[in-house]
């Protein structure tokens, strides 16, 4: 209970502190550079040059310490040994390209990168297109969207139960094995079968992310000008033609956004692999490999190097996002 009290106290202190900071700094600025008197014009100009930085101060400090500094520091750490005490040049990078587990992680990450965004966006588009046409569509949507609220670990428990294997002679209680047995197949420990197991883990993320894709694509589909669809109907296009030739081309931009958002998530996928296989049986991925080297390996040099690989992989998307944001603002 004690820490709940501290949590609540922190909220009060934190919120109060923030308010106080903003209030006091503004007050000080107004007192130091009053907008009246002989130098009013100059003071107002100066004050309005300073004020934005007061408003953004705490955010800039937090962003710099918690996101910018680590990026720079990681580059530095990746050039040093396990404890960070000695400079080792590019040794960590040389180790990396020759490491079997790293190559396995890269291969798996690439597979995740292709399968998960494609499947989530595909299912999301299907769900969006179908649910928009029926009366109980909103209800259906919120059920498909629901896994979004479930933690990756929770989802891992849910799916591990489906893949459960009891062993020979016992009644299978995992849904997958029960179905396999029902169609006269042989029950298996699916989670240990390479390379199928990686795909079984991907299913979990697809299950979670489809709702996200559906919500956004559904909004985009509704935003399509009605005239374009009407024109196609008059020209005698079939529903499928309307969907693929008229609607989808008009929402390419949104599809790209959904795809890249899921791609970033996939590059950082960690909890699912940790909870279901912990990288055994050929399912290792970069984020979990980094975690391994950080805690079990206790090697900050190698862990930082792996983390930087993830950073390099997201950089193209980062640049693309910044470009888009810039275009939006003009």
């Amino acid at each position: 209970m004690e820490q709940v009290f501290w949590a609540l106290a922190t909220i009060v202190i934190g919120v109060f502190g923030c308010v106080l900071y903003f209030y006091l700094t503004n007050l000080l600025l107004d007192l130091a550079l009053p907008g009246r008197g002989p130098n009013a014009g100059r003071n107002i100009n100066r004050a309005s040059a300073i004020r934005p930085w007061l408003f953004m101060g705490p955010a800039i400090v937090l962003l710099s310490v918690y996101l910018v500094y680590p990026v720079i520091n990681s580059v530095w750490l990746s050039l040093r040994d396990a404890t960070g005490d000695n400079f080792v040049g590019l040794d960590n990078y040389v180790w990396l390209v020759g490491d079997r587990k790293f190559l396995e992680s890269m291969r798996n990450n690439m597979m995740w990168l292709v399968v998960v965004p494609a499947a989530s966006t595909g299912f999301g588009l299907l769900a969006a297109a179908l649910t928009d046409r029926i009366r109980w569509g909103n209800f259906a949507k919120s059920l498909i969207f629901m896994p979004m609220a479930i933690s990756f670990v929770g989802a891992s428990v849910i799916w591990k139960f489906i893949y459960d294997y009891r062993g020979e002679g016992l009644t299978e209680i995992g849904l997958l094995n029960a179905i396999v047995v029902a169609i006269s197949g042989v029950a298996q420990g699916w989670i240990t079968i390479e390379p199928l197991n990686s795909f079984l883990l991907m299913v979990v993320l697809i299950w979670i992310q489809t709702g996200f894709a559906m919500v956004i694509l559904s909004a985009a589909l509704r935003g399509i000008p009605e005239e374009t669809v009407e024109a196609a109907v008059i020209d005698g296009a079939s529903p499928l033609q309307i969907f693929f030739r008229i609607k989808v081309p008009q929402i390419w931009g949104t599809i790209a956004v959904v795809w890249t958002t899921i791609t970033i998530l996939v590059l950082k996928v960690f909890d699912i692999v940790l909870a279901m296989t912990n990288g055994q049986w050929g399912t290792q991925v970069l984020a979990n490999l980094m975690f391994d080297w950080m805690f079990r390996g206790a090697d900050s040099g190698r862990a930082s190097t792996v983390a930087l690989v993830i950073m390099v992989l997201v950089t193209p998307i980062m640049i693309w996002n910044i470009r888009n944001a810039k275009r939006e603002m003009q």
Binding site: V68, P70, L77, M294, S300, V306, M311, M318
Partner: peptide, 12 residues
């Protein structure tokens, strides 16, 4: 900064 992987931030 939206897409910076958190993995990068942990050790520092």
């Amino acid at each position: 900064l939206l897409v910076v992987p958190l993995q990068l931030a942990f050790i520092p």
